[in-house]
């Protein structure tokens, strides 16, 4: 992991819905090539924070840059340099595998030649050559998840945002999915991932734990475990989140 520059830099980012402060002055940086885990109970504000970073939602106050573009003023540029995969499985189910790849790479402004080489690489690395013409809805869940990740990174973004990417997936498939994440990170892509599975938090370079809209802990899993003197991230989470007021 190269510690050269900050790919995500967040300062006092806040989001209010009326009187309710969903995200309360959060500040953190993410380095290039890092796998950054973004944890928190339901309703802690992690999805809202992530949406602001992706340009799906406007901050009430504070600032942030993603890939060196300001999210408030350079939304278009931010969108060009990020990939996004959401909680729900997010590809067009009614389209074939190759059609999905073509659609999303066209959306990201890739030329036909680029699309061809990128999709060839994708089929090879995912071992999906025989499934090009399969409708996505007919793929097994594990394959869909892997394909969704590959499609969200097909334009080689600087950061990829993964919003609970492994929800509802069995442990073996989750393990395989994380192998893809590692591979992307090794190639220099920054991975920003929210998850509910605390064993997955162990795979991250650093994790932040959000409680009631604020970041209550931020460090590497190892340092956090040492700090709270426990053996697993699960216990860390319990200690940090025990004072949470908000519930679902």
């Amino acid at each position: 992991m190269k510690k050269c520059d900050k790919v995500i830099s967040v300062k006092d980012l806040t989001k209010k819905f009326g009187n309710f402060t969903a995200v309360d002055h959060i500040t953190f940086d993410v380095q290039k090539g890092e796998i950054f885990g973004f944890l928190g109970a339901n309703g802690a504000g992690k999805t809202t924070a992530m949406k602001m970073l992706c340009g799906l939602s406007r901050p009430s106050s504070g600032s942030a840059t993603v890939a060196n573009y300001d999210i408030s003023t350079q939304g278009e540029e931010v969108k060009r340099h990020i990939g996004y995969m959401s909680q729900k499985f997010s590809l067009y189910e009614g389209l074939r595998v190759d059609e999905n790849i073509k659609l999303f790479s066209t959306i990201y402004g890739m030329t036909d030649d680029m699309i061809k080489s990128a999709s060839d690489r994708l089929y090879k690395s995912l071992n999906m050559e025989g499934m090009k013409k399969t409708l996505v809805k007919d793929l097994p869940v594990g394959w869909k998840q892997k394909l969704a990740f590959a499609v969200s990174t097909i334009h080689n973004p600087e950061v990829v945002f993964l919003d609970e990417p492994t929800g509802g997936v069995d442990p073996v498939t989750r393990r395989k999915f994380w192998e893809l994440i590692y591979k992307a990170s090794e190639e220099g892509m920054t991975v920003f991932v929210t998850t509910h599975y605390l064993d997955e938090a162990e795979y991250c370079n650093r994790v932040s734990i959000m409680v009631d809209g604020k970041i209550s802990a931020l460090d590497s899993p190892k340092a956090l475990k040492e700090k709270f003197n426990v053996a697993t991230m699960d216990e860390v989470f319990r200690i940090v989140a025990k004072d949470a007021i908000r519930e679902d």
Binding site: E76, K79, I82, K88, L91, Y92, I107, Y108, G109
Partner: peptide, 13 residues
């Protein structure tokens, strides 16, 4: 509902 709208919205379209 399917979440694909978000995919379009986070893209540069």
């Amino acid at each position: 509902e399917n979440g694909t709208m978000n995919l379009l919205l986070v893209s540069p379209i």
